[in-house]
């Protein structure tokens, strides 16, 4: 699983960072999404998919490579 976060779309809701803080965070200056890693370990794939689905602004893309 590979992740891509679009800070232009992000609305800073923090759904991702609060669900999987090991993978997503928000920077202090703007409060927008930042990836801790773009390749989450396989154990986290399920919860990452849930976080992606709950992003209100659909700012996180998942690809399979």
């Amino acid at each position: 699983m590979r992740l891509n976060a679009d800070r232009d779309r992000c609305v800073g809701a923090g759904a991702c960072a609060s669900t999987v803080p090991a993978v997503f965070e928000q920077d202090e200056e703007e409060g927008l999404v930042r990836l801790v890693t773009d390749r989450p370990e396989s154990a986290l794939v399920g919860v990452v998919r849930r976080a992606v689905s709950m992003c209100p602004a659909q700012a996180i893309r998942v690809s399979s490579e």
Binding site: V11, G12, E25, G31
Partner: peptide, 17 residues
């Protein structure tokens, strides 16, 4: 909306909360 929202987003990050 985006301009207004972005003035608030740093105040409501997961870490800050």
């Amino acid at each position: 909306h985006t301009v207004h929202r972005r003035l608030l987003t740093p105040e409501f990050t997961y870490r800050r909360i």
